[in-house]
């Protein structure tokens, strides 16, 4: 007799638990406002990334096409993956002194892990992490970027 009661108890428990589960899913299908997915390429204009989001390394230039990189290679040293490669050259400045400036600030995006170690390492805050996350390109060579714009100079007063 006990077994028979247990048998029906099992059935009752089973059905109750199944209905409970269906109530949860039923709750959500009847509330389309709770949908969480976003229509990604369509919402590109309104998509707001967080300020600190680490996309890729960029070098900001001001309106006179001047950057703040002195070519000290601190970022190159601190980078764990050899992502940053600084090719510098010595030029003669207007006052006759020779100074080391960057020729090319090469950034290998394909090797970057976005760890963000290079940003605090920079003594002049010449590089920052942008919010751009769309890195897909059709050719690998496009991932090797030169961050200083052609013809750009170092901002005066930055040593």
């Amino acid at each position: 007799m006990k077994e028979i009661i247990q048998y029906f108890k099992d059935i009752a428990f089973g059905i109750k638990s199944l209905i409970k589960g269906m109530r949860v899913t039923g709750h959500y299908i009847s509330r389309p406002s709770k949908i969480i997915t976003q229509q990604y390429p369509e919402n590109k204009e309104t998509l707001q990334m967080f300020d600190r989001f680490r996309g890729e390394v960029v070098m900001p230039h001001d309106e006179n096409n001047e950057h703040m990189c002195t070519g000290c290679s601190a970022c190159e040293v601190v980078c764990p993956n050899g992502t940053i490669e600084i090719i510098s050259k010595r030029v003669e400045m207007e006052d006759g002194k020779k100074q080391k400036i960057i020729d090319k600030f090469v950034y290998h995006l394909q090797m970057c892990t976005m760890c963000g170690l290079c940003i605090p390492a920079c003594p002049t805050d010449a590089i920052v992490m942008s919010n751009d996350f769309e890195h897909a390109v059709f050719d690998r060579s496009q991932l090797t970027k030169i961050l200083n714009k052609p013809g750009s100079k170092i901002m005066p007063g930055i040593k």
Binding site: T25, Y28, I35, T37
Partner: peptide, 13 residues
């Protein structure tokens, strides 16, 4: 579509 709405998604759009 039904599965999507159960799962808080939009499904094919």
């Amino acid at each position: 579509k039904v599965s999507a709405f159960f799962q808080l998604r939009l499904g094919p759009m």
